[in-house]
């Protein structure tokens, strides 16, 4: 059915991976880091009052779906998104689109996807994947966080698409209705990069941007009063949000550094090259921060957790990252 043979790409993150694959399939070659950067997806946010499984929300990237939205805004892409109130109807529509030869993006829960190993199954409802084909009772799926194509039966995929709760996918399906074949990088890149730098440096609320990082550091200092069991889970949770959820390493900082490098070449800007190197170093510092936490929460570790040292490390990462954004604002 398909005019162009679909090529699966292994990516770091689900939403940026899906968009990179999908656009490449439609003739616009855009790497995952370019997708990530062009949608200004890099952020930091710490929302202690929003709890997921008893733990506060810590985000290294923007809200789910913001990559799809950001691309539409910044590069003139147009996407069609369909949601369903009836699950059977949602499955029928998916089958129709596949029969028409579409590669279809879908939002799903992670927990109910049969190809996810037990160890990776958590209740997270804003996962993204592409359905590329259906044979008998099975869908062939390109899930960017997996190395190869995977499969899911009709019943399981339907369940994963129609879970209720926070960020309920409501069966959301998406595919492009218009794909630009060229991007005016000289115009678009400065805009997207400045937006990210400004958001990180100047967001006036204490929970977002660099202020959010300092806010988290402040709460790490206060963990002493919270008891060891909770504190260890809290600290482990930070590592998970930074590394486990598919960030390309260091909470998307390496992806962003890769984006800056590619941008530097595209518009021949030496400042961006240097900013990319600085961002890589910042990523390394985030990894050191994670390592510091891991060492102190190990069950083998019998020493008292040095919350102060962890908080100070985090603050130094924030300082280092601030320099990257200042550099970026001066780059144009």
């Amino acid at each position: 059915m398909q005019a162009v043979k679909f090529k699966h790409q292994h990516a770091a993150h689900c939403e940026s991976g899906v968009m990179s694959s999908m656009l490449s399939h439609h003739g616009l070659k855009l790497s995952e880091p370019m997708v990530f950067g062009l949608s200004s997806a890099l952020v930091f946010a710490y929302l202690p009052f929003v709890k997921l499984g008893g733990m506060p929300l810590i985000a290294y990237r923007s809200m789910p779906k913001s990559i799809i939205k950001g691309l539409q805004k910044n590069i003139g892409l147009k996407m069609k998104v369909e949601k369903f109130s009836n699950a059977t109807r949602g499955t029928q529509r998916l089958d129709e689109l596949l029969a028409q030869g579409h590669i279809v993006g879908a939002q799903t829960s992670v927990f109910w996807l049969p190809y996810f190993p037990e160890e990776m199954r958590f209740h997270f409802n804003a996962h993204n994947l592409m359905v590329i084909n259906k044979t008998d009772d099975n869908y062939s799926i390109s899930d960017p966080v997996f190395e190869h194509l995977v499969e899911a039966d009709v019943k399981s995929l339907q369940k994963a698409r129609f879970v209720k709760g926070v960020m309920a996918p409501k069966g959301a399906l998406y595919y492009p209705s218009y794909v630009p074949q060229e991007i005016d990088y000289k115009k678009v890149l400065p805009k997207c990069i400045k937006k990210t730098a400004k958001t990180m440096l100047k967001t006036p609320v204490p929970i977002a941007g660099l202020k959010g990082i300092y806010f988290l550091a402040k709460h790490i200092r206060q963990l002493e009063k919270k008891g060891e069991q909770y504190s260890k889970l809290f600290l482990g949770h930070i590592i998970r949000m930074q590394e486990e959820i598919g960030t390309g390493g260091a909470g998307f900082r390496y992806i962003y550094a890769s984006f800056l490098q590619e941008s530097a070449e595209l518009i021949n800007n030496q400042e961006l090259f240097e900013a990319s190197k600085m961002m890589t170093a910042t990523g390394d510092a985030w990894r050191e921060f994670a390592l510091l936490i891991a060492k102190s929460i190990r069950s083998k570790n019998k020493k008292v957790i040095d919350y102060l040292a962890i908080a100070e490390k985090l603050e130094s990462v924030a300082q280092q990252e601030a320099e990257v954004y200042k550099k970026l604002l001066r780059a144009f």
Partner: peptide, 13 residues
């Protein structure tokens, strides 16, 4: 062990 034989993509230089 938590990757259950899977691999993840990372960005490096």
């Amino acid at each position: 062990s938590t990757y259950a034989e899977n691999k993840k993509a990372l960005y490096a230089t």
